[in-house]
């Protein structure tokens, strides 16, 4: 086998230092993605710095009424946690729609955010892929691209981000806390992931050695409802064709607050700002939902196999908002 060092980090400082010092060291959390990559030959790190023993496994309320989710909280624990189920239902639903029970038991919050695309060309090392081997080309652009991006893609890469959790966190205005040996910073979830542009090998804006320590969710005002709907080709254990995370508050018969994010459409969770703008202040009704969705999707650029994603995204967004409105008005 390809030999590598394994080190279990006891504290955050030493974890960050270990990865910064060794040029080919990487963090290991749940391993549900990284271990696959080791086997497939996608990556060959010299050292794995296991962060699962770090004291980052708690879910705590913040003074402002929001929630702080530690980076090593397991997906299954997060989905089941009472504050998440009660106050951020979209997040719980998103987590439970991802992967399988076994994988959710292993996967962590930080790792889920940083999981890499499931583009099958990325995963097959004998094929060209700019994300895996920069400069080799994109096999999916003119290959099998049914599951690929219709928003924000480039000729260099048409991969999608596979996470469900991140889509819900994007709609919930989450903030990612990041540590390096030099400093600490926060990044909105919506700005953590990049669009591929000319550098598809860079999934996120994180620098080498930066470690996600937590995700903060701001409080949701009274009367706010959230939902997550994932459309996929089988009832479980499949990545999203399209998913929608939605946050909705209706006051005096008009939409007072709305936050929407799409999964399965882009290289990152796609916050639907244009649709939100159209909807804010509008009366919540079917035609408006559809029009907002169409406005958001007017910039979509389908590939040979995935034009269906555009009407599917429009319909799914409409269905989620319709169901949420029914709930709000009940």
């Amino acid at each position: 086998m390809i030999p590598f060092e394994y080190r279990r980090a006891e504290d955050t400082d030493s974890a960050v230092a270990a990865v910064e010092e060794a040029p080919r060291a990487v963090f290991l959390a749940g391993g549900t993605n990284l271990v696959d990559h080791l086997k497939l030959g996608i990556t060959a790190p010299e050292e794995l710095v296991d962060v699962t023993a770090l004291p980052l496994d708690t879910i705590e309320s913040t003074p402002d009424g929001g929630l702080r989710i530690g980076a090593t909280v397991r997906n299954s624990d997060l989905a089941a946690s009472p504050p998440v189920r009660e106050r951020y239902r979209a997040l719980s639903l998103a987590l439970l729609s991802g992967a399988s029970a076994q994988l959710r038991n292993r996967a962590t919050t930080g790792g889920n955010l940083l999981q890499r695309t499931r583009c099958p060309y990325f995963q097959e090392v004998t094929t060209p892929c700019n994300k895996r081997s920069p400069g080799t080309g994109c096999s999916a652009l003119h290959g099998h691209n049914k599951n690929h991006a219709v928003l924000g893609a480039s000729d260099s890469c048409v991969a999608t981000h596979p996470s469900d959790m991140a889509v819900a966190m994007a709609a919930l205005d989450g903030t990612v806390h990041v540590r390096s040996s030099r400093d600490e910073r926060t990044i909105p979830v919506t700005e953590l992931h990049r669009l591929p542009g000319e550098q598809p090998h860079r999934d996120t804006v994180l620098e080498r050695g930066e470690l996600i320590t937590a995700v903060d969710l701001p409080p949701l005002p009274e009367g706010t409802y959230t939902a997550y709907r994932k459309v996929r080709e089988r009832a479980s254990y499949a990545f999203a064709l399209v998913s929608v995370a939605a946050v909705l508050r209706v006051a005096n018969g008009v939409i007072d607050d709305v936050r929407l994010a799409f999964g399965g459409l882009a290289h990152k969770p796609w916050r639907a700002g244009t649709a939100e703008e159209r909807l804010r202040g509008a009366i919540p009704e079917e035609a408006t939902f559809r029009e907002a969705a169409e406005a958001e999707l007017s910039v979509a650029r389908p590939l040979a196999d995935n034009a269906f994603k555009i009407p599917l995204a429009r319909n799914t967004l409409g269905a989620v908002l319709r169901d949420l409105t029914t709930e709000v008005l009940r």
Binding site: Y121, T127, H144, F239
Partner: peptide
């Protein structure tokens, strides 16, 4: 509902060559 192996017309391989991408009915289906 699910099963379909897709051949890449340029590379010639089955693109969805694992059980994550070549869908087989799960219990939930």
């Amino acid at each position: 509902l699910h099963e379909e192996a897709v051949l890449d017309h340029e590379l010639g391989h089955v693109v969805n060559q694992d059980l994550a991408e070549y869908h087989i009915a799960t219990n939930a289906d």
